[in-house]
Amino acid sequence: MNKITFILIAICIFSSFYACKEDEFTDSVFQDAPAIDPTSPAYNFEMWLESNFRKPYNLSFQYRMEDVGSDQDYNLVPASLEKSKQLAQLIKYLWFDVYASMVDEEFLKKYGPRMIHLIGSAAYNPNSGTMLLGTAEGGIKVTLYSCNDLDLTSFSQNNLDLMNEYYFKTMHHEFTHILHQTKDYPRSFEKISAGKYSPMGWQYRTDEEAAKLGFISTYAGSEAREDFVEIIANYLVKSDKDWNAVVAMAGTEGASIINQKLTVCTDWLLEKWNIDIAKMRAEILRRQQSLDASFYNNDL
């Protein structure tokens, strides 16, 4: 081996090691805050997003709908500016701030999505009669639908349940997808309800039928990975009363399966992510219950 060949091989080896170096959290990959006209109706909101999402979390919060970045299979409309402001504050309060206080401030900087895309309408599937509430793509982007249905004029339990179903649960659902796409969940989970999943027919099961089969929601019965994140998302946002009501509806056998799944999820969160799901749930419920009309900052 001559000298030049040796040097080239050495450079290649060093380069490949360098490539394996873990990325540090650095300045945002996104462009600097857009030069926005101070007279724009969105100026204050853009500044708020800059200091609350883009800078600290390297996250692009897309409330102005980008058609090319949305799912072309659906007819969709943008979120309203007003609802986007409200939802952005809720996302921070009930998701980002929870992880910052219950895990650590770096957690979502490292594992959180790089984009949140708000869509005004639901993504309807007219053929199956279902609608999509959210998606998580490749651990990078979370899309939340139906944002224009957000109603912050009432904080009754009914409205909270609705908000849980449409937004809060969806946030945790989609984020849990990101977490298990980063560190896979135990294969043993898939065996618990093997043979009972119905990817094409889950929507035809009633809540009770799904619960008796050991699914916390009808959608959980679609496939194992959805089942896994539904257990976590539902547990995080449902009050004891609501969670226990589903477990009671499941009967002895169904309840046993749901509890078995919860145990797997609890252990996985603790072992892989050092997250105590019970403590996190208590914090989320505390924050949910503290919501009232004064929560929303009208000046954004």
Binding site: A122, Y124, N125, P126
Partner: peptide, 13 residues
């Protein structure tokens, strides 16, 4: 956006 809102009938508007 009334003309493109897909809520009624669902998915189409």
């Amino acid at each position: 956006h009334r003309f493109s809102d897909p809520s009624n009938p669902a998915g189409i508007g």
